[in-house]
Simulated assay, not measured.
Amino acid sequence: MSMNRPAAAALAAALCLLAGACGSSSAGRADDDPAGAAGSKSGYPVTIDNCGVKETFEKAPSRVVVMNGASVAEVSTLLALGLGDRIVANEQTYGMSEVPGRAAAIKKLPTGDVKLNDAYDIPREAMLGLRPDLVLSTTSYGFDRKNGFATRDQLKAVGANTYVSPQGCDQDTSKMTIADSYRLLRDMGEVFHVSDRAEKLIAASEQNIAAVTAKVKGKKKPKVMVLFSNMSMGGNDFGSVVAKGVYNDILARAGGSNAFENAAKGSFADLSKEKVAATDVDALVVIGYNDPNPAAYARKLLKEFPQWPAAKNNTYVTLSDSMYLGPSNDLAVRKIAGMLHPDAF
């Protein structure tokens, strides 16, 4: 997901207060196919360079801990690759998914019965007590000593490899694209010796997206507002509006553009109601993060800003995990394209 870890903690605190063009996404099909997921020991050791740290794997990990990070990218990638049985503690959840059965599968995963810290994540001593052999973090924040987390060196000392997801090394995910979702799949495919499965998922996603982009090629690109439902990460009325990141790549493939791309240098913009009202918005993409009714939030916004073309045409779609870093971006591309260019499908 293209959200930094401090923002993740803010999102979690706020929560406390408050079908593809060429067939189904390949990532969805793999979730329920654990057969052959365990990589054979041949092909090891495997060494990858991750944020300037060389991580060497002597065998496929069997005690994986997935940190929170307000993401489901890592846990969804493991499930898509059929590796759910390797997870001993998962702290990621959105409560919903575009992939049938994925939210339920995530809910069934063990959490390690860990008492989480103020960032809704796993503190140092609890992490070491889980005896992991691989720890996945959305950004480098998850290994920051100052925030009470186990460092990569501390985990290495107890035999655990570590991995920071693409674009998470400097906690700036504003340059993230769909290619980073594929990189995460490829890296995990290599680590667990299931690269053939990762490549099949990637090929299916690329095929699905290519089919959509071919249908919307040359069409006018509507201006889209992308935001989280019922959340604020800033001091203004609209603090969860997307400015940059993988979202924009998804919009572009779907034949749209971000109405607020230039509103901030980072991934998110913190906007006043006046700024939002003064911008032409042709369509809404509302991202639900454990929100049981993001559609109600979308309708509320359209009623609040009746001058928008989106309001006049009732043009919106609600999405969840397919809009983030992860294995299901093709589903978001297809759904958004269908909303923006219904005549093309």
Rank of each mutant, 00 (worst) to 15 (best):
V164Q: 01
A126W: 04
S140E: 04
L109R: 10
T151M: 04
V114C: 12
S97W: 07
G129F: 01
F143K: 01
G168I: 07
A160Y: 02
D113M: 13
L130T: 15
G129M: 09
G168A: 06
K115A: 15
G159E: 05
E125S: 12
G148T: 06
G168S: 08
D121M: 06
A160L: 04
S97L: 11
L116Q: 07
K156L: 08
G159L: 01
R145G: 00
R131N: 13
D113V: 12
P100H: 10
G142A: 07
T111M: 14
S140I: 02
S137T: 15
N161E: 10
G148Q: 02
A119D: 08
D170Y: 07
N161Y: 04
L134K: 11
K146A: 10
V158I: 14
D121P: 10
K146S: 09
G129Q: 13
C169F: 11
S165D: 08
P166L: 02
L128Q: 06
D113C: 13
T111Q: 15
L116C: 09
V99W: 11
A126V: 12
I106E: 10
V135Y: 04
P166D: 03
L130E: 13
K146W: 04
K108Q: 13
S97R: 07
V164N: 04
E125T: 12
A104W: 05
G159M: 05
G129H: 09
R124W: 00
S97V: 13
T138H: 01
Y120L: 09
G159Q: 04
A150S: 11
G142N: 03
A150P: 05
L155D: 05
P110F: 14
L109C: 14
T151L: 05
G101P: 11
G129S: 15
V164R: 00
I122V: 15
R102P: 02
G112Y: 11
S137F: 02
Y163L: 15
N147H: 11
S165W: 00
D121C: 07
Q154A: 13
